[in-house]
Design a protein around this nucleic acid. Structure first.
Length: 432
DNA sequence: CGCGAATGCAA
DNA sequence: TATTGCATTCGCG
């Protein structure tokens, strides 16, 4: 057991503490979820995950060569030496010397982030395009190639720390290293998942909840349209797009589906028309039309959001279905912006928090079920809605079924919980 | 060396 | 003016 774990542990609560929690209706949360989870996390940390060091070293070498090449290209274009990693120096080159006009500001000046550069791309492509490439490659090189190599223990495995009391919504967090943000979206980044492997005779089981946060919204809002779509097992983004744009599902285009997806996810974060417009790169007015269409199609969702904020304002905190409370003092702050941020936090807490609670129940029960059945399979990682299990070949089929079954029934909502699984020798191979 | 800011990776 | 995290880098004090 890692140092600090026992201090952090909330197991063995003093009777007085338990009585206080009971009075607040929170004893169940601690006794059935948080206390047993302490042991699950300790075991995950102890077991760790096997790393193919040479795979990481190969990536490091390739990325180092590429950053050097791009550095040369960029210095050649500008005609002098400068620090590519300094936003201040980049700002000077792009906006003072070249005279470009960015669409976004930071707290201290003009922004040079990727979204901003993307919009300026064709005004100075010979500089901005290699710069965007440099940013991507340098991120992978420094954070993932160098960062992960530095964390490989003498046993050839990475033993991250999983924090139970950091995220304010009830999620777990991971550090040293953070295994919750290993790249997957870009082809280059995804290569890092090839370095996460299993010992001989074992296979990696990856099981993830399908759309769990949206299912939580459907349940909490009791929205007939959303509940019906999930119950029917439809592709939720296509179904949503059909309702937003008032077309039959067969006529939903890729773009419409993509917009619907953006709206659905933005909802859980309290996004407004301005934010949607920014992300879709369309006028705020057009984004407002889309948002209104969404709330017309799924009216209970808006009611749920409004009700959640109102309740949180009265009580000073939000509470998940399982009794997890999050104080939100920002709701009574004198500053309008701070209050608005508090409202978004209130809207998000019940949704992200419920999903986190369900996942924690699944982790505890899966760990107990594996132990009770005498399996050698071990939970080695969780990533918010996904669990990785290291499975001896002989247990493959049985543990796959047990995992799906446990996750599906961790909670009974108004909509079914669906779980996807995949097996592989590496994390990259186990694509669900 | 510590810290805030900027940036970017994930769910 | 979209939530929750963590790591890296720069640049200041």
């Amino acid at each position: 057991m890692r140092a600090g774990r026992e201090a952090l542990a909330i197991t063995f609560l003093a009777p007085a503490v338990l009585a206080a929690l009971e009075a607040q209706g929170m004893a169940k949360l601690y006794l059935e979820i948080e206390n047993p989870l302490v042991r699950v996390l300790a075991r995950m940390e102890e077991v760790g995950i096997t790393i193919d060091r040479s795979e990481l070293e190969g990536l490091h070498e390739r990325l180092t060569t590429e950053t050097r090449r791009l550095t040369d290209v960029l210095r050649e274009v500008v005609g002098r030496d400068f620090n590519l990693n300094s936003p201040i120096q980049l700002r000077q080159i792009l906006y003072e010397e070249r005279g470009l006009s960015p669409t976004k500001k930071t707290k201290t000046g003009l922004s040079t982030d990727a979204a901003t550069l993307e919009k300026l791309r064709y005004e100075w492509p010979e500089f901005i395009e290699p710069l965007l490439q440099y940013r991507e490659v340098e991120k992978l090189r420094s954070t993932y190639a160098e960062g992960l190599l530095a964390e490989v223990a003498p046993d050839g495995r990475i033993h991250a720390t999983f924090n139970q009391t950091v995220a304010r919504t009830g999620r777990l967090s991971s550090d040293q290293p953070n295994l919750h943000n290993i790249p997957v979206r870009s082809d280059e980044g995804r290569q890092f998942r090839k370095a996460f492997i299993t010992p001989p005779g074992h296979v990696l089981l990856v099981a993830d909840y399908n759309q769990i946060e949206l299912r939580c919204i459907a349940h909490l809002a009791e929205d007939p349209g959303l509940v019906a779509a999930f119950t029917a097992g439809e592709d939720i983004h296509t179904a949503t797009a059909a309702r937003i744009f008032s077309v039959p599902e067969e006529q939903v285009t890729i773009g419409m589906r993509s917009t619907a997806k953006m709206v659905s996810y933005g909802l859980a974060y309290g996004m407004e028309a301005y934010g949607l417009g920014q992300r879709l790169n369309i006028p705020t007015e057009d984004a407002a039309v889309i948002l209104n269409a969404y709330f017309t199609a799924f009216p209970n969702v808006r009611d749920y959001m409004d009700g959640t904020v109102k309740e949180a304002r009265t009580r000073g905190y939000t509470e998940t279905l399982f009794g997890r409370r999050r104080p939100i003092p920002e709701l009574s702050n004198a500053n309008y912006r701070v209050r608005q941020a508090g409202e978004r936090q209130a809207m998000n807490a019940g949704i992200q928090g419920l999903a986190a609670d369900i996942f924690k129940v699944a982790l505890v029960r899966l760990d107990q079920a594996l132990e009770a059945a005498g399996y050698a399979s071990r939970i080695i990682l969780q990533v918010h809605d996904e669990v990785l299990v290291e499975v001896p070949e002989a247990e493959r089929e049985a543990v796959g079924k047990l995992t799906v079954d446990t996750m599906r029934h961790a909670a009974e909502l108004r909509v079914p919980l669906e779980v996807n699984t995949a097996f592989g020798r590496t994390w990259a191979d186990a694509k669900t």
